[in-house]
């Protein structure tokens, strides 16, 4: 897939249209469930109204009183400013053998970044492999979207994921309190450790979202017969004789893995959303934002 296919004009137009739809949805106008500390709080003038008794006299606009000889009180609008962290799993399993996972992950990262920038938030972009590394410095302002897109385009997907170590190493400071999006297939070295690995998400400062991306053929592979399997991350090879019953057992274990991940997130108040790559992007994106994100609330 070429890079132009990732963020073509059609995709960007669709992104803008979605933001317009978001503004009209009342439920998305509510504040997020998390309160922000005062460090990010600003006050902007909104309107005047007549002074009544019991109003704070310090809020009377004396200049206006001098001109009109009537007392008015200044009204201010409270504006919150968040830090949006977007972590993209950049291991080889996100790109091969199903490149749809990479495309969807990157599109979602760009969409979330765009939403954050256009809402006046600060946006940080990270890549997760054996550890989580920052792709580019904190961005703010709508004009930086192209810089984010360029950084995403250059992102290489290789290496193996060490889920537990990576998530444990990510510790955003209190000054960067905000919303954290983790975009990953959660495929690590050992499926039994996923619960332990996801424990770190609960300790992150702010609202955490885990978007679990997987391909339909990862859930239900069509590999009956004798096959030689090669792991895309480690290069490990294994000859197997797969029957239909084996594949049914595989699917059962994969679904169980999804349930374990969801349960681990819910128990730690982390929003979990599984995303099959054959699902429509815009529907999924709206679904993601409708689940009570503060990011959506300010859009």
């Amino acid at each position: 897939m070429s890079e132009d296919d990732l963020f073509d004009s059609e995709f960007l137009d669709k992104l803008r249209a979605m933001f317009l739809r978001l503004r009209k949805r009342k439920q998305l106008r509510r504040k997020g469930i998390q309160r922000s500390p005062s460090a990010g709080l600003t006050r902007e003038f909104k309107d005047y109204r007549h002074y009544v008794r019991q109003d704070d006299y310090r809020s009377i606009d004396w200049r206006l009183y001098a001109r009109l000889e009537r007392m008015f009180v200044r009204l201010y609008e409270e504006v919150q400013e968040f830090h949006v962290h977007i972590i993209v799993d950049a291991s080889a399993s996100m790109s091969r053998p199903f490149p749809e996972k990479r495309r969807n992950a990157l599109r979602l990262a760009v969409a979330l970044s765009y939403l954050g920038l256009i809402s006046g938030h600060r946006v940080s972009l990270y890549a997760m492999r054996e550890r989580i590394t920052e792709l580019l410095p904190v961005q703010k302002g709508q004009g930086n979207i192209q810089r984010l897109i360029d950084a995403v385009r250059k992102l290489e997907f290789d290496g193996a994921t060490r889920l537990r170590q990576s998530l444990a190493s990510f510790r955003p400071s209190r000054q960067r309190y905000g919303v954290i999006f983790l975009l990953s297939d959660l495929i690590g070295q050992n499926p039994d450790l996923v619960d332990d690995a996801l424990r770190n998400l609960g300790g992150w400062p702010g609202e955490s979202h885990l978007i679990h991306i997987f391909h339909p053929l990862e859930q239900s592979p069509e590999l009956e017969g004798e096959v030689e399997l090669v792991d895309v991350e480690t290069g490990e090879g294994r000859k197997m004789w797969l029957t239909r019953q084996d594949l049914e057992r595989y699917t059962e274990s994969f679904n169980a893995y999804l349930r374990v991940a969801e349960r681990a997130c819910l128990s730690r108040q982390v929003d979990y959303l599984a995303w099959r790559t054959d699902g429509a992007f815009d529907e999924f994106f709206l679904e993601l934002l409708s689940r009570g994100s503060v990011l959506a609330g300010k859009a």
């Binding site: 080889a92 399993s93 091969r96 053998p97 199903f98 297939d185 495929i187 690590g188 070295q189 050992n190 499926p191 391909h215 990862e218 592979p221 590999l223 017969g225 004798e226 096959v227 030689e228 399997l229 090669v230 792991d231 895309v232 991350e233 480690t234 490990e236 294994r238 000859k239 197997m240 595989y250 274990s253 994969f254 893995y257």
Partner: peptide, 12 residues
């Protein structure tokens, strides 16, 4: 046998 690249070797 045919060779197939997989991302979910842990499950296999």
């Amino acid at each position: 046998s045919r060779t197939v690249a997989v991302s979910t070797m842990v499950f296999f």
